[in-house]
Computed example of a mutant assay.
Amino acid sequence: MLHIEKLNVSYGSIHAVRDISLEVNQGEVVTLIGSNGAGKTTTLNAICGVIPSKGSIRYQNKEINGLPTHQIVKEGIVMVPEGRRVFPKLSVANNLLMGAYSRKATKLELQEDLNMVYQLFPRLAERKSQMAGTMSGGEQQMLAIGRALMAMPKLLILDEPSMGLAPIVVKDIFETIRRIKQQGLTILLIEQNATMALSVADRGYVLEHGEIGFHDTAENLRNQDIVKKAYLGK
């Protein structure tokens, strides 16, 4: 579904991402793990057209590198950004509807999609009239994921969904990711919490200093000594 070859991103004299190649197949959850500053978010921003890059980014056999971000969203790639970035002065329901702005959907279709999100996140249904800025970090993360799902993505990109959240909330978020995976949605997950990321992923890539150090199945990565020591705290 997504094939990246020799992706390079530079900020002035800083070569942040160097010749990255990776792929995400339909129906997979693929995780990109690495320490702070390894280039994970930069890679995502390049995929989504937020920053310029060199190299090939092919999505469903179409070259998308160079397309504007709104066009990439219409192609079916939707990202939940780091830090959630909900609209604080809009209600939960209106935040969710903002996720569907690029679609041509009837009121009935939008309501059905809202109901789908509310089933996935019952807490959002309870608080649909509440201003998003008054919600907890975990609730805002649920809202950000729900808003992305309203765009009906074919590829969902999650950037650090556990950041700043209490462990019990992180567990809930990753349980939701498992449920989304079971529905067949393809996911590219960027996550510093390697233990949680590898628990839901099919495959993983380890990013070190802007380069892919190695990649393997999630199970094999969990059992590699170098990954255990560097990322799993073992």
Results as ranks from 00 to 15, higher is better:
residue 184 G to N: 10
residue 111 Q to M: 08
residue 213 G to N: 10
residue 212 I to C: 01
residue 123 R to K: 15
residue 74 K to T: 12
residue 51 I to R: 04
residue 33 I to H: 02
residue 220 N to E: 15
residue 79 M to W: 02
residue 95 N to R: 01
residue 128 K to V: 10
residue 50 V to L: 10
residue 230 A to Y: 00
residue 206 V to Q: 00
residue 82 E to K: 10
residue 86 V to T: 09
residue 60 Q to S: 14
residue 211 E to Y: 00
residue 157 I to V: 12
residue 65 N to A: 13
residue 3 H to C: 11
residue 14 I to K: 10
residue 32 L to Q: 01
residue 200 V to N: 03
residue 105 A to C: 09
residue 98 M to N: 04
residue 66 G to E: 08
residue 64 I to C: 08
residue 103 R to V: 09
residue 83 G to C: 07
residue 61 N to C: 11
residue 33 I to Q: 03
residue 27 G to I: 11
residue 73 V to K: 03
residue 193 N to E: 14
residue 220 N to C: 09
residue 57 I to H: 03
residue 134 T to P: 07
residue 183 Q to F: 08
residue 134 T to H: 11
residue 25 N to V: 09
residue 77 I to Q: 02
residue 20 I to P: 00
residue 157 I to W: 02
residue 110 L to K: 09
residue 73 V to D: 03
residue 28 E to I: 06
residue 196 M to F: 13
residue 127 R to V: 13
residue 13 S to Q: 14
residue 117 V to M: 04
residue 121 F to C: 06
residue 41 T to Q: 05
residue 225 D to F: 05
residue 185 L to C: 05
residue 136 S to G: 05
residue 29 V to H: 00
residue 107 K to S: 07
residue 105 A to Y: 08
residue 90 L to K: 10
residue 98 M to V: 12
residue 200 V to G: 01
residue 150 M to E: 07
residue 2 L to Y: 05
residue 17 V to I: 13
residue 73 V to M: 07
residue 123 R to L: 10
residue 90 L to S: 06
residue 221 L to Y: 06
residue 59 Y to M: 08
residue 224 Q to V: 01
residue 133 G to D: 04
residue 110 L to R: 09
residue 217 T to E: 14
residue 191 E to G: 06
residue 187 I to Y: 01
residue 186 T to A: 09
residue 34 G to E: 02
residue 69 T to F: 08
residue 27 G to W: 13
residue 68 P to E: 13
residue 230 A to M: 09
residue 43 T to M: 10
residue 81 P to V: 06
residue 106 T to A: 07
residue 56 S to V: 15
residue 41 T to Y: 05
residue 58 R to H: 13
residue 205 Y to H: 04
residue 71 Q to T: 14
residue 43 T to R: 07
residue 117 V to G: 00
residue 212 I to L: 01
residue 29 V to K: 00
residue 25 N to P: 10
residue 155 L to H: 02
residue 42 T to M: 07
residue 145 I to K: 01
residue 81 P to Q: 06
residue 46 A to W: 02
residue 134 T to Y: 12
residue 175 E to N: 12
residue 189 L to S: 03
residue 79 M to N: 03
residue 143 L to Y: 01
residue 92 V to F: 06
residue 36 N to D: 14
residue 203 R to Q: 11
residue 209 H to Y: 13
residue 94 N to Y: 12
residue 191 E to I: 09
residue 52 P to A: 06
residue 127 R to M: 14
residue 174 F to S: 00
residue 50 V to I: 15
residue 8 N to K: 12
residue 15 H to S: 06
residue 100 A to H: 02
residue 43 T to S: 12
residue 10 S to G: 04
residue 122 P to K: 12
residue 100 A to R: 03
residue 134 T to V: 15
residue 175 E to L: 07
residue 185 L to F: 09
residue 219 E to H: 13
residue 214 F to D: 05
residue 109 E to M: 01
residue 81 P to F: 03
residue 135 M to W: 01
residue 140 Q to C: 05
residue 110 L to H: 04
residue 223 N to C: 07
residue 174 F to Q: 00
residue 46 A to P: 07
residue 80 V to G: 01
residue 87 F to H: 08
residue 1 M to C: 09
residue 225 D to Q: 14
residue 76 G to K: 05
residue 22 L to G: 04
residue 161 P to E: 06
residue 140 Q to T: 04
residue 127 R to T: 12
residue 46 A to C: 11
residue 201 A to F: 01
residue 92 V to S: 02
residue 139 E to F: 00
residue 166 A to G: 08
residue 190 I to Q: 01
residue 109 E to C: 03
residue 79 M to F: 03
